[in-house]
């Protein structure tokens, strides 16, 4: 992982994007068990249809986990100060999620240097599924002289 230094980061800098494999029913079955979210709306098509949905749909927290991987692919998890998302639209089986992030602010407070990121996840059609933000700590500028 490359060292990120405060004064070498510019507003508008993009994180390397992350595209995950298409989400399958198997993905949802694994995530149901692994995440402790046993809501049948995500794994049982019969239940989902009886509840008025067209089919099962993806756990929002799976999309957020993917977004977390975008962050931990860029900085060490220790440097993530905060991370939040809004689940904008439902993600369905077969969708391919791409996570993107961009530096929108730089802040220094009491010797902690951080950047604020704007986060977006889109599907294979480019439709926005999740939006959010994070603050991550980066390296202090080198002291002159």
């Amino acid at each position: 992982m490359k060292d990120l230094i405060f004064d070498q980061i510019a507003l508008g800098d993009a994180l390397p994007s992350l595209t995950k494999a298409p989400i399958t029913r198997t993905t949802l079955a694994y995530f149901c068990g692994a995440s402790n979210d046993h809501n049948p709306l995500h794994v049982d098509s019969d239940f989902a249809r009886a509840a008025g949905a067209d089919d099962v749909f993806v756990h929002g927290m799976l999309d957020m986990a993917y977004m977390g991987q975008l962050l931990t692919g860029w900085v060490s998890q220790r440097d993530i100060l905060s991370f939040g998302v809004k689940f904008g639209a439902i993600v369905y089986v077969g969708d391919t999620i791409t996570c993107r992030g961009e530096v929108v602010d730089k802040v220094e407070r009491e010797g902690v240097y951080a950047v604020k990121l704007k986060l977006r996840a889109v599907d294979q059609h480019g439709d926005l599924k999740l939006s959010g933000e994070a603050q991550v700590r980066v390296g202090a500028p080198a002291v002159a002289g």
Binding site: G60, M61, S82
Partner: peptide
Amino acid sequence: ATKILHTAQSFEYFEP
């Protein structure tokens, strides 16, 4: 509970 959707989630981090 049968009609609940998760609309937002955020975290602040301190220790791993």
